[in-house]
C-alpha cells in the first residue's frame, strides 16, 4: 500500500500557542485512522492544516503523490480531500439537497444529472433523503452533523476527514453512523477520524494516532495504544510511575 497522505514535520503556532509541533505521519490508501487527544491538543488545527484552512509555518504535506503544501483549500478539495466540521457550517439558506449538490458540482466537478443522482445516493446513504427539500437552517444539530458528512461525501473524496461526528448521538444513531462510515471506507475512501466517542472510533479504525500539545505522542495498533501508559496518563490523569 502506498501513502495517500504524507505529513512531514508540520508546524504551526499562534504566538506562544503551538497547535502543531513537527508532526509527521502517513495515511495509507484505503486505511481508516483515528486521532485521539485531549481538548485543545491541536486535532482540529491538524485538520485545518491538512485541508488548507490554515497555512503551516513549516513542514510539508503530500497528497496522492503530489506536494500540496501551497495549494489552497478549494484546490485541495478538488484533489480529493473533504472534511466535516466539528461545529457544523451548513449553507443555511439552501436546502439539504442544494448543500450537497454544490459539493458535487464544485468539489467533485460533476455535472447535470450525474451530480443530482450522486447527491441523491449520498443523501440516501446518510439518511437525509427525507429532508432533501428542507432548508439547512431548519435542521437540528444532529441533522446538521449528518449534513456535514453528506456534503463531504458528495465531493467524492479520496480522503475523508471526520471531526467529532459521533458526539451527542444516541446508542442506536451511533451504531448507524458506524455502519455508514464502515461502508464508505469499504468502498475505497480513506478515512481520518477525530473522535472522543472512543468505542465508535475503535469499531472503525485500524490505526490510532495520539496527539497532545500539537505533538504526536504515539501511534500504532488501536488496542496497544489504548493500553499504553501515555494515553492513560493523558486521558485519566494517572501518573504511570505510581
Amino acid at each position: 500500500m502506498s501513502a495517500l497522505l504524507k505529513v512531514d514535520g508540520l508546524s504551526k503556532s499562534f504566538g506562544a500557542i503551538v497547535v502543531a509541533d513537527k508532526t509527521s505521519f502517513e495515511v495509507n490508501e484505503g486505511a481508516a485512522i483515528g486521532i485521539l487527544g485531549p481538548n485543545g491538543a491541536g486535532k482540529t488545527s491538524l485538520f485545518n492544516l491538512i485541508t488548507g484552512v490554515l497555512r503551516s509555518d513549516a513542514g510539508s504535506i503530500h497528497f496522492d503523490g503530489q506536494e500540496i503544501t501551497s495549494v489552497g483549500a478549494a484546490g485541495r478539495c478538488k484533489l480529493g480531500i473533504a472534511r466535516s466540521y466539528q461545529v457544523p457550517h451548513p449553507f443555511v439558506g439552501m436546502t439539504v439537497f442544494e448543500n450537497a449538490l454544490v459539493a458535487a458540482t464544485e468539489g467533485a466537478s460533476l455535472r447535470g444529472h450525474d451530480a443530482e443522482n450522486h447527491v441523491i445516493g449520498v443523501l440516501e446513504q446518510t439518511g437525509l433523503l427525507p429532508k432533501a427539500n428542507v432548508r439547512a437552517g431548519a435542521l437540528t444539530l444532529l441533522e446538521r452533523k449528518r449534513l456535514e458528512m453528506a456534503r463531504a461525501l458528495a465531493a467524492k473524496p479520496k480522503l475523508l476527514l471526520l471531526d467529532e461526528i459521533a458526539g451527542g448521538l444516541t446508542e442506536a444513531e451511533c451504531g448507524e453512523l458506524i455502519q455508514t462510515i464502515q461502508a464508505v471506507n469499504e468502498s475505497g475512501t480513506t478515512i481520518v477520524w477525530i473522535e472522543h466517542v472512543v468505542h465508535a472510533l475503535l469499531a472503525v479504525v485500524d490505526h490510532l494516532i495520539v496527539i497532545d500539545f500539537g505533538k504526536k505522542i504515539s501511534e500504532g495498533e488501536p488496542k496497544k495504544i489504548m493500553e499504553s501508559a501515555e494515553v492513560k496518563e493523558i486521558y485519566l490523569g494517572v501518573d504511570p510511575d505510581v
Binding site: T51, A73, A74, C77, F91, V92, G107
Partner: peptide, 16 residues
Amino acid sequence: TAIRDSEVAASGLGID
C-alpha cells in the same frame, strides 16, 4: 449562494 451562507464551508468544498 454557498459563499453567501458560509465562506469557510464553501472553500472547503472546492469553491475558489
